[in-house]
Amino acid sequence: MTTTLIFYFFAATLIFAAFRVITVRNPVHAALFLVLTFFSSAAIWLLLQAEFLAIALVLVYVGAVMVLFLFVVMMLDINFAPLREGFAKHLPVGLTVGFLILIEMVMVVTHWKGLANPSTVVTTEMSNTKMLGQVLYTVYAYPFEIAAAILLVAMIAAIALTSRLHNRAKYQKPEQQVVVRREDRIRLISMPAEPKD
């Protein structure tokens, strides 16, 4: 009963946050709602006793990727006027997101143990982390390698699409400017005079 309630709470938060990600106008707010989305899904994973995935999601996505992403959003050439209006304007959103995350964390920490439904969750002596470690490089070695290739392609793509190896900036070459002659720049041609209409 409690599990169901907690699940629906997180699920509802997740859907609400995901919806807000695409509806808010301000990209910084969208990124913050994305953080909330990740957090809610991490909480749902904890309910499923997948604590390694949940922690990895929080550490990697919320902790690293989204922070970087926030930097990127701020670096982008978007209209900064509404963003610069100060801390106070963002405070309510930040507080709401932070508060919700806090509630979720408290609820999970106090409730997630013993909530598992024995009929659906494989109960083993080992922790989820240990189990993942045992299969990741053995049974799932092949998909793991493919995922590595995908990441390599992502890296190639990012470099191919952003780097400009050949500098196209135009600059002056004084040594060529001083030796220029009149003939190089002006060409006199004789044309027949046009009759007047």
Binding site: I146, A149, I150, V153, A154, I156, A157, L161
Partner: peptide, 9 residues
């Protein structure tokens, strides 16, 4: 995904 990602690029 490997195919699609390469094609997008």
């Amino acid at each position: 995904e490997l195919l699609s990602l390469s094609l997008y690029t």
